[in-house]
Nucleic acid binder design. Structure first.
Length: 392
DNA sequence: AAATGTCACAACCGCCGCCAA
DNA sequence: GTTGGCGGCGGTTGTGACATT
């Protein structure tokens, strides 16, 4: 025999809670605690099911809930944790005091997810969206010469994988990275004293977490500094550090248009099943291909996408590690959440000091400004990058 | 000013693991 | 050992507010 039913589902009220119902629930829990949710509605005089009461309390009425707009630090933490935990909203919420899983889930779906998509990043995998790489554009391009060394054959697939314009921009980015190896040269005036230091230990697969890019977007100029040392990449904040794993260097599978393509050497697959694009090999192929792109595509979108991708991948050896574009290394969330305090000058109700990286953010920054900063920074450099002759 | 579209979020739905009966 | 309710969780929906046409 199982337990008796928690409640009679007939005749129970559904839908929005009234202030009177809220008050009844609050009064009861303040006096007695919630105890068994099964018996609570009856004892509290509520015509609701226990589950409904529990949700109302945990998501809305609980006194320790922090209302108001998410701060940038919270957003950063959510993205970092999501890259580790996925859609484990309750686990994420457990690391964000005062926020509920429901609230975080809603915020993710309505804000962060859309922003990542705009940035060309898959919010599920935290990798650049390969579906943006239009297979047909190269085939359709008048510049594509099938008599030349076939990139597609070289890659073991039937059609080229990448959007022509994206390829062109990628090659120029590579060129730029070669010329400016270890440090990401972007505007750095007015760097805060406690800006992030980004040190890599090899030339491998070191990336800025997206949160850093977003943070840069808020800071306007607070760009992490990249240096090269040895074999494990570490992201050093003043109070915590992230250890980055070097992905396996093997063949990989790229999914595009619902098809899987395996091609050694060019793409590398991390053990997280995400792909790493080796830009050296990539450019080499482009060079063999005699490729250069046309410009009849949505350049703004490509700029944004590539800018975002490039900014978060300032790798010395030109590897774009897609697997860790967004992923924060599996550092202790506790460490992340208990570093130096941050105060947001936000107009929202939440001006609580947060336990995250040391950042002071002007809350007047708009969401558009957060979005656009990354791409704007790269656009700033693009004119100098557009020389494709190096690869011809 | 009205109609329509979009956004944000509270609340519900349905599934799952645990565990009391 | 089996059954089935409870609590928790993630996904989805409904709806009011706001923006745009």
């Amino acid at each position: 025999m199982g337990r008796a039913p928690c409640c009679d589902k007939n005749g129970l009220k559904k839908g929005p809670w009234t202030p009177e119902e809220d008050q009844k629930l609050i009064d009861y829990i303040q006096k007695h605690g919630h105890g068994s949710w099964r018996t609570l509605p009856k004892n509290a005089g509520l015509a609701r099911c226990g589950k409904s009461c529990r949700l109302r309390w945990t998501n809305y009425l609980r006194p320790d809930i922090k209302r108001g707009r998410f701060s940038f630090e919270e957003e950063e933490t959510i993205i970092q944790l999501h890259s580790i935990l996925g859609n484990k909203w309750s686990a994420i919420a457990a690391r964000l005091p005062g926020r509920t899983d429901n609230e975080i889930k809603n915020y993710w779906n309505t804000h962060i997810r859309k922003r990542l998509l705009r940035m060309g990043i898959d919010p599920v995998t935290h990798s650049p969206r390969l579906d943006l790489l239009d297979l047909s554009s190269i085939l359709g391009s008048s510049l594509y010469n099938p008599t030349q060394l076939g990139l597609s054959r070289l890659l073991g697939m039937e059609v080229p994988l990448v959007n022509s314009e994206l390829l062109r921009l990628a090659t120029n980015l590579l060129s730029s990275q070669r010329e400016n190896p270890p440090n990401l040269h972007l505007p750095q005036n007015n760097l805060p004293e406690n800006h992030h230091h980004f040190s890599t230990t090899t030339t491998t697969a070191t990336t800025f977490p997206t949160s850093q890019v977003l943070q840069a977007a808020i800071h306007d100029q607070d760009i992490p500094v990249c240096t090269t040392t040895s074999n494990n990449a570490q992201f050093l904040n003043e109070n915590h550090q992230f250890n980055m794993q070097r992905p396996n260097v093997e063949t990989s599978t790229v999914v595009a248009g619902g098809q899987n393509y395996s091609h050694p050497n060019v793409w590398q697959e991390s053990d997280a099943s995400a792909s790493t694009l080796n830009l050296d090999n990539f450019a080499s192929l482009l060079n063999h291909q005699g490729y250069y792109g046309n410009s009849d595509v949505d350049q703004a979108l490509l700029m944004d996408t590539l800018a975002d991708q490039a900014l978060i991948n300032p790798n010395y050896n030109h590897n774009l590690n897609f697997s860790s574009v967004l992923s924060t290394p599996a550092s202790s969330p506790t460490n992340q959440l208990h570093s130096s305090s941050t105060y947001m000058n936000s107009s929202s109700a939440s001006q609580t000091p947060l336990n995250s990286s040391s950042t002071h953010i002007n809350g007047s920054t708009t969401e558009d400004e957060r979005d656009s900063y990354c791409s704007n920074m790269l656009k700033f450099e693009i004119p100098d990058l557009l020389d494709v002759n190096e690869f011809m």
